[in-house]
Amino acid sequence: MAKLENSTKNMVLSLTAITLVVGALLGLVNAVTAEPIEQAKANKQAAAIAAVVPGEGNEISEPETVTSANGEEAVIFTVTKGGQPVGKAVRAVSKNGFGGKITVMFGFDPNGNILGYSVLDCSNETPGLGAKMPDWFQKGQKGDIIGKNPSTNNMTVSKDGGEVDAITAATISSRAFLDALAQAYGVCSGTEVATTSASQQQNATAVASCENSQSCADCAESM
């Protein structure tokens, strides 16, 4: 077959035809994959809830979207079993990650003790440093936060006077993680919101002064 010549008609026709065909094809693929994509997202969410509030036969309520103290969207799932409250799973966002936002799901029992957590997005954290957060704070690990209660335990990094060991050389990411925890706890325990956000601000100023005096240590964050 001879090559089409460079007439304007041919050029417009072929480019339009190809764009239309590709567009239609994409529409088709999009229609086919739309459902699995939603499914994958739902699965991820369900898996995260199951991981942070463990137990067989739990029922999960419809999500309740609220705004946490830092103005970000937080989502609360109430978990019950046979009508009895088991705990709450809270998805919260911290804006203070090393390279942007991080999203973490926390599970609390009815007394506010931390049952578990699952990091949903820490893709902006440094690999090998801040990106260790999915494991670092788990049970038996160095930064273990499981079983602690944000209203009685000081959930800040030891550098800020708290009792949580920060990820080695990733203080900023660790602070962001604990900030997400404070956000989650704040929205989950209605009455404590005020106190949490107040202590939050104190923390913020403490962090600020600390950040100035220890800027060298912070530079070391990524080295």
């Binding site: 041919n10 072929s14 994409l26």
Partner: peptide, 24 residues
């Protein structure tokens, strides 16, 4: 498609095809 694409618009056409597959 190479014979159906006039020379002068071959780059845009190729890019559309490639972008299509990338999106898929």
């Amino acid at each position: 498609l190479k014979n159906l694409i006039p020379d002068k618009v071959h780059i845009p056409c190729y890019i559309v095809v490639i972008a299509g597959f990338v999106t898929v």
